[in-house]
Simulated scan of single mutants.
Amino acid sequence: MGDFNLALVIVAIVVCILVFFFNIYLLVNYQHPDDKNQAYFPKFVVVFGLSIAAISILMLPADVANRQACRHSLYNGACNLTLPMKTLWLVVYIVDAVLVFFVIPFAMFYYEGDQDKSIGKRIKSSLMWVVATAIVCGLVLGILYGVVGKVDFTVRHLSSAATAFPSSWTDYTSNQPCIGSSFHQCSAYAASASSEKTWTMRATFPEYVVALATIVGSVLFSIFGGVGIVCLPLGLIFSFIRRPKAVITRSQYIKEATELSKKAKELKKAADALHQEERSGSKGRKWRKNVKSVEKELLLLEEDVKALEEMYPQGEKAETTWALTIIGYLAKLILGVLG
């Protein structure tokens, strides 16, 4: 059993390290090129948040493996578990709640703040928003904990008389499971409904926070997950409806390509102007807003270019490309209907 305990601890430590480094790889690989070698605190928050999210999922198999240390015991209290899973569950969920309600908002307010302001002013502004959030969350948690921070347990009240250990069990049958001639409420199977009682206990505040975070997370996941599941087939169906109906002529292609090239030149001018503002050091809130606007227009331009290429396939295998495009849209329709 000692070898099993040691192996479980080693595996838990190694998995946590691998999760952390994997999230670092994700950040480095998918970060924006302009964000290299800067904004280290928000990056740390991103890596730490992703790691906590992954570890909270991996806690379930760790808990199952941890129970194997007591598989030869009559009850769980007869042995010492390898990992203090109850404490770890509380720590992970409370850290998750702190990240969601305090650390991540602070990082967002700080990173998205006006770059013309000094670091001290940006920290002060971010702290003001976080403190306001903390006050609201504290009031909500405190009021709810005082009002509904209790747990109700439905139990069945059973009782029986006492007697010396019998030498024979012939006196006890399904009709008379209790000791003595009078019928007592000692059998849960035969007990009446009136024997049910309700015990009310005050939950500890950490457990209450974990339960509340779990409920809120489940509700939000159900909402956003449900919306995503519904929107996916609808998106596939609408993609089929908006598909290109026929191949356009060369003159139409040239006309559309000319319009797209004009739009691309305008976006390039806007991007160059933003780069000049960035080099001059004026990266304020207005600059960030303009950057997001240019990025949005660029995405729309890329979609228009892709649609134009679909409507006018070129090359030696133009007919094959068009046939594959039609088959792809038919597949989207089928998946959308079946989904």
Rank of each mutant, 00 (worst) to 15 (best):
residue 1 M to E: 15
residue 6 L to N: 13
residue 12 A to C: 10
residue 12 A to P: 05
residue 13 I to W: 05
residue 15 V to P: 04
residue 22 F to K: 09
residue 23 N to D: 13
residue 25 Y to D: 08
residue 29 N to T: 13
residue 32 H to P: 01
residue 35 D to F: 09
residue 36 K to T: 10
residue 41 F to T: 04
residue 46 V to F: 12
residue 48 F to D: 02
residue 50 L to F: 04
residue 51 S to R: 00
residue 52 I to Q: 07
residue 54 A to M: 08
residue 56 S to W: 04
residue 65 A to S: 11
residue 66 N to S: 11
residue 70 C to N: 12
residue 70 C to T: 12
residue 73 S to K: 13
residue 73 S to M: 12
residue 82 T to H: 06
residue 85 M to T: 11
residue 90 L to I: 14
residue 91 V to C: 08
residue 91 V to I: 14
residue 99 L to W: 04
residue 104 I to R: 02
residue 109 F to M: 07
residue 112 E to L: 08
residue 112 E to C: 04
residue 116 D to C: 03
residue 119 I to K: 05
residue 119 I to Q: 04
residue 121 K to Y: 12
residue 125 S to V: 00
residue 126 S to A: 14
residue 126 S to E: 04
residue 128 M to R: 07
residue 131 V to P: 02
residue 132 A to L: 11
residue 133 T to V: 06
residue 137 C to M: 09
residue 138 G to Q: 03
residue 142 G to M: 02
residue 144 L to T: 15
residue 153 F to Q: 12
residue 163 T to V: 03
residue 167 S to E: 14
residue 170 T to K: 11
residue 174 S to Y: 03
residue 175 N to D: 13
residue 177 P to E: 00
residue 178 C to Q: 00
residue 179 I to G: 00
residue 198 T to K: 08
residue 202 R to I: 01
residue 215 I to K: 07
residue 231 C to M: 14
residue 233 P to W: 06
residue 235 G to N: 12
residue 238 F to H: 08
residue 248 I to T: 08
residue 249 T to Y: 04
residue 256 E to Q: 15
residue 257 A to C: 01
residue 261 S to F: 08
residue 262 K to V: 09
residue 266 E to Q: 14
residue 267 L to S: 01
residue 269 K to R: 15
residue 269 K to D: 15
residue 270 A to T: 12
residue 272 D to H: 05
residue 272 D to P: 01
residue 281 G to F: 05
residue 288 R to N: 09
residue 288 R to F: 03
residue 291 V to E: 09
residue 294 V to I: 15
residue 300 L to K: 13
residue 300 L to V: 10
residue 302 E to C: 09
residue 304 D to L: 02
residue 307 A to T: 15
residue 325 T to D: 03
residue 333 L to C: 05
residue 335 L to F: 15
residue 336 G to C: 03
residue 339 G to I: 13
